[in-house]
Design a protein around this nucleic acid. Structure first.
Lengths: 226, 226
DNA sequence: ACAAAAGTGTTGACATTACACCCATGC
DNA sequence: GCATGGGTGTAATGTCAACACTTTTGT
C-alpha cells in the first residue's frame, strides 16, 4: 500500500427542452483552481461510492432529495501522471437528472456550476475530457438499450419531448410516426389522459413511465431497444 | 488522501473445446492464504493498469507474449469493508485468452491456477463472487455486440467451434443453419481453404477473422450483432 | 457400408422503413 | 382564419425463425 487518493467524478446530464447538457464546475482548490472540471471530490475514509456521488450532486445542484437521480459507474481512470500531486484514481459516474428539479449553485466544493451543450464544452482539467467521451458513449448506449430517458424528463412527458431527447443525444433525426408507434406500443408507457399546455398551439398528450410494468416484462425476457 | 491500496483482479476466460472456463488461483498471502480467488495483485507505485493486467496474466498462465490477449476494464469495486486490512479498491478486468496458448502454472504470485466451468466455481474470497457475476454479464454482452469470440479461438477456426463457444457462453442452443449463414455472410470472416482434422469424421472448413475488414466496415456505420 | 459430424435452402412471420396529410389550439 | 406544432396509417422491404436431409470422412 502506498499514498494515493480516490476521487469520484460525475458526468451529470440533463435535458433542458432544447438539447442535452452536461454540468461543469470551476474548481475551488489547487491544483488548477478555477479551471473547468467535472464535479467531483476525493472519497472520504468512511464514505462509500454512492454516498460520495450523492454528495457531489447535492453540492453542485443544491437538490435536497438525493434519491431521485440515476447514476451508474462508468469505470476507473488511473494514470500515474494524470494528477500533479501524485497518483489519483478517478472513478467516473454518469448521472441523469431532471433539469427542472436541479438548480446549479455555488457550494463549499464548487463554484459556477453551469450546463453546457456538447459542442460548447471548454477544455477541462486532468483527463476529464476522456471521461466526458466515455460518459457520452455510455449515455448513447444506455439510451438505446434501457428505459432511462425517463430520468431526464418530468414524470409526465409528451411524445414530442421524448423524441427530442433521443434526437439530441443520438444526434439523428427520427421518423415521427415510426418513433411514436414504437414507443406508444410499449406497455410501460401509459397515457395519463392529461394534456400539456406549453405554447399557444395544440397541446400534446402526457404519458408516464411505469417501471413495475417494465420490470415484469424484463423478467419474462423482454429486451428494451429503441 | 489516506492509506489504501488499489488491486487489479482479472476474470480470465478461455474455451477448451467443450465449454468456457474461468481461471482461478489459490492465494499465496494473508489474508485468506490458500483460498480460491481471482488472479490479482496490488498495483505497484509506477505501474499502470495495463502493465498490471499483463503481469497477472503472465504469472498465472506463464505466457511469454503479453500482447496476445484481450482485456477490458469492467469497473472498480469499492467497499469500505470488503477487505479486512482496510480499504482496498479492486479494479476488475475481463480477459479473453486462447486456451492452447496459455498454460496455468504456479508462480511467485499464485498457486494452483486452474480452469473452472461456470457451475463448478467454488466460493471465492472478498467480493470476487460479485466480480465474477459482473464479468460474466459483460462477457455475454460483448459477445453479442462485438467480434471478440475470435480471441477465444485459434486464429483458424471452424464454424462448429464458433457456434459451440456461443452456445456455451450464451447458454442457449442456436440453429445451425441460421447461425452459419449469418456468420459466413460477415465479410470479415474469411474461408482459408484449409480443413481441420480432429476426428475420424468429415473435417470442418477453417475460417479466419480479418480485423481490418471489420474496422473498415465499422467506420462506415456497420454494427456487429449476433 | 456404417457411424458421426459437416454442410446446405426455402418459406412464413414479424419488424422496420418510407412517406403526406389532417387536426387542435390561441391569437 | 392562420400559423404552429400534434397527431395519424399503409405498403414495401428486410430480417429472423423454423425446419430435414445430403455429404464427407475414417474405419
Amino acid at each position: 500500500m502506498f499514498q494515493l487518493g480516490i476521487s469520484v467524478n460525475c458526468a451529470v446530464y440533463a435535458y433542458d427542452g432544447e438539447s442535452h447538457k452536461v454540468l461543469l464546475i470551476r474548481r475551488k482548490r489547487a491544483p488548477f483552481e478555477n479551471a473547468w472540471a467535472l464535479p467531483g471530490k476525493l472519497i472520504a475514509p468512511n464514505d462509500d461510492l454512492d454516498a460520495t456521488v450523492a454528495r457531489i450532486i447535492k453540492a453542485s445542484t443544491g437538490i435536497k432529495d438525493e434519491d431521485i437521480f440515476y447514476s451508474r459507474q462508468i469505470r476507473a481512470f488511473v494514470d500515474t501522471d494524470r494528477h500533479p500531486f501524485g497518483r489519483v484514481v478517478s472513478i467516473a459516474y454518469i448521472c441523469l437528472v431532471r433539469y427542472t428539479e436541479f438548480e446549479p449553485q455555488d457550494s463549499d466544493l464548487f463554484s459556477m456550476p453551469k450546463w453546457f451543450a456538447e459542442d460548447k464544452i471548454p477544455k477541462l482539467v486532468f483527463d476529464h475530457d476522456d471521461i466526458i467521451v466515455s460518459s457520452k458513449r455510455r449515455l448513447v448506449d444506455s439510451l438505446r438499450t434501457k428505459p432511462i430517458v425517463f430520468q431526464l424528463l418530468n414524470k409526465e412527458f409528451s411524445l414530442p419531448e421524448l423524441q427530442s431527447v433521443y434526437e439530441s443525444i443520438l444526434d439523428t433525426e427520427l421518423d415521427k410516426r415510426n418513433f411514436r408507434r414504437k414507443l406508444r406500443d410499449m406497455p410501460f408507457i401509459e397515457d395519463t389522459g392529461f394534456l400539456q399546455k406549453v405554447h399557444q398551439y395544440r397541446p400534446a398528450r402526457l404519458y408516464k413511465y411505469n417501471h413495475e410494468t417494465f420490470r415484469a416484462m424484463k423478467a419474462k425476457g423482454y429486451v428494451f431497444s429503441l
